[in-house]
Design a protein around this nucleic acid. Sequence first.
DNA 1: GTCTATAATGGGATAGAC
DNA 2: GTCTATCCCATTATAGAC
Lengths: 206, 206
Amino acid sequence: MTTKNKILDAAEDLFAVKGFNGTSLREITSLAEVNLAAVNYHFGSKKELIKAVMSRYMNELAPNLEKALLDVGSDENASLNDVFSAFVQPLLSLNNFRENGTSNFLQLLGRGYTDSQGFLRWFLTTQYPNVIQYFVDAVQRAYPELSPEDMFWRLHFTMGTIVFTMSSSDALLDIAKNDFSRDLEIENLIEQVIPYIAAGVAAPLK
Amino acid sequence: MTTKNKILDAAEDLFAVKGFNGTSLREITSLAEVNLAAVNYHFGSKKELIKAVMSRYMNELAPNLEKALLDVGSDENASLNDVFSAFVQPLLSLNNFRENGTSNFLQLLGRGYTDSQGFLRWFLTTQYPNVIQYFVDAVQRAYPELSPEDMFWRLHFTMGTIVFTMSSSDALLDIAKNDFSRDLEIENLIEQVIPYIAAGVAAPLK
DNA sequence: GTCTATAATGGGATAGAC
DNA sequence: GTCTATCCCATTATAGAC
């Protein structure tokens, strides 16, 4: 367990809960039990640390996701439900990569869209363009009537649904337990949301 | 134009763009062209200022929204699309209340869910419970097969779609302009999103 | 590579003159 | 009600000893 990895782990957990702006280097180094100066020594700046935390996940996720999306994209009979379901296994496998990996990653993604004026959005779309392209292609094949413009909007709505749901997933799972006596996992949440977004994307055109 | 209102206006514009955490009192008073100490004199603290900014909108919006939701909720033949459409006029009328009112308010709502560890969510749900109740009732009537548990999930997904879309609406409208030569307003965005969320809430049950 | 100490900046809040 | 000046605290980042 190197200092660099201790920092990455601690930063990830704190960023997921409190956001990037809301987490200080002091909190990170304190949780990681390393010296305050270590962040700047190993990463150069807080911004670079944020990128490093996200890259660690994206480098793990991107190959699996690209493969799954290429597969479903080349299947003539794939439905929209199938396309969205292609995300499930790659995302869940992040739990093997790190404890709460799936939940953490999705929460970080949500933070990236609202914190820090979109620099993370820029980073992800420029660094991992294939994931997006393959996804768009697969949706296009499953629902050819959707114009590029309508697809743009609906995919953004979908991104919002996912990201927001996941960034408040802890609270949601708590409520489900209290109000409905349901002991759910992040996995069940993903199963709940897929019919919703598939129906949304497939909504009738005006 | 009182000092208090100058502060509220400036705070609102900055909060919408940069979030609550991302906006300093110095930026607010500088934009408002008032003295730094004025915020604490008039509002007591930054947190109270945030509440005041939100209350100004909620006090304007809540009566209109409650009325629209009660109306659509008492209509035997109202569809889910009708229920969601009930939000449109009350939301758009915020543009008469203040320039960019609709967009600003929705962005602030989005910020409230991700910034500042949910204190704003608590504030809104406890201060304006009727809006939520009437809305749930109207959805229940339009789609009675939906169990309370499924409704809970789907309404939360819907909240996520709206809030996320609106909190990145500036970026989205920019992209629409660049990629599709479309000069859209927040109004068009709302029209785009309603079919999506209505279809999502109405998705087939397992 | 790790530490202490500290620089440099910016934050929210307040005291007290006017 | 408004202003200046300032307090006190937290932040990121770095210099320099070990």
